[in-house]
């Protein structure tokens, strides 16, 4: 990450300088401070916000309202600046800090664009995160604690009696509960979400094409007839490319933001002069400079 940064950071700082210069330029001399002029570009800006909201041009009456609202904001804003109400205002500080973060994210998108090469490398080193989970199809019946003193024994008795009869004979041998008899092509997390307990994980070890169990869910004990058990696999790059772009960019943004922050911080001399326990102060100070 450092290497990517050495050069672009300079440009990020240049951006800061550019903004500084521009703002310096737009804040004109004293005599202009009590003038509010609404010129073409101003009007166009205000109108374009309206048009984006309403998909039509404002009427004269609406334009009057827009201008009045704008003026009210502008007048209060200027008066607030005159008496330094922006200074040490927590909301203003957070807002500006957030704008810097947005800028650094834009910046990240520019310098760290997710090329195929980078994505493949990212995929390789994070393969486990992208595994297609186990997939199962099965039939089930359930024995709940509501209906049975000892659902374990009850289920075993049913298994012995009907286990080798035609599969669907089992349909009405468990409790009446609104859980489907048939589950088709569910991924492991879906089984977990539907049935809870430890049932999804238990399916790994069950035999195919015969009634087996009981295994426990969040509802009770189940007999299971497993017809499909597909082991986890690595997906094709193209299949999950969108996801990779999303994840890669997310991580790059975080790293870039951190790198920019650390580098900018290095320009400051940070001292805690507060009256603190000496050892605590040293620890805090050390961590602030070298986290």
């Amino acid at each position: 990450m450092k290497k990517i940064f050495a050069e672009p950071l300079v440009h990020f700082l240049l951006l800061g300088l550019a903004i500084f210069l521009l703002y310096g330029w737009v804040s004109d001399d004293e005599s202009d401070k009590n003038k509010i002029i609404i010129d073409d570009s101003h009007l166009a800006h205000l109108k374009s916000i309206w048009e984006l909201q309403w998909n039509r041009a404002p009427t004269e009456e609406e334009l009057q309202g827009i201008l009045e609202k704008h003026l009210q904001k502008e007048v209060f804003y200027r008066e607030a600046l005159k008496v330094n109400l922006d200074h040490n205002d927590e909301v203003v500080k957070r807002r500006l800090a957030q704008k810097m973060e947005f800028l650094s994210d834009d910046f990240s998108a520019l310098v760290d664009a997710p090329t195929d090469e980078k994505l493949l490398e990212y995929f390789k080193s994070n393969q486990e995160q992208y595994l297609v989970p186990y997939q199962f199809s099965f039939k089930q019946i359930v024995f709940t604690h509501d209906k049975h003193q000892d659902p374990q024994t009850a289920s075993q008795m049913v298994l012995e009696k009907y286990g080798s009869k035609p599969v669907d004979d089992m349909y009405d041998k468990g409790d009446l509960l609104s859980i489907p008899f048939n589950f088709e092509n569910l991924y492991e997390p879906q089984v977990e979400q539907e049935l809870g307990g430890n049932l999804a994980a238990s399916l790994h070890d069950l035999p195919l094409n015969e009634w087996s169990g009981p295994v426990e869910s969040g509802y009770g004990l189940h007999l299971i007839y497993l017809t499909k058990k597909q082991a986890p696999s690595i997906p094709e790059f193209q299949e999950i490319r969108d996801e990779l772009v999303r994840d890669y960019s997310y991580q790059a943004e975080k790293e870039n933001q951190q790198a920019i922050y650390q580098s900018l911080k290095n320009n400051y001399q940070i001292e805690i002069t507060a009256d603190l326990d000496k050892q605590l102060l040293e620890r805090l100070q050390a961590n602030l400079i070298q986290p």
């Binding site: 672009p8 440009h11 990020f12 240049l14 951006l15 550019a18 903004i19 521009l22 800028l103 834009d106 910046f107 998108a109 520019l110 310098v111 760290d112 664009a113 997710p114 090329t115 195929d116 994505l119 490319r241 772009v245």
Partner: peptide
């Protein structure tokens, strides 16, 4: 304007071509 300066200042036009 500020962002324009940033963008052209970055001198890394290839980044955009490979944007996914």
């Amino acid at each position: 304007l500020a962002l324009l300066i940033l963008m052209i200042g970055c001198g890394n036009p290839s980044a955009n071509e490979n944007q996914v």
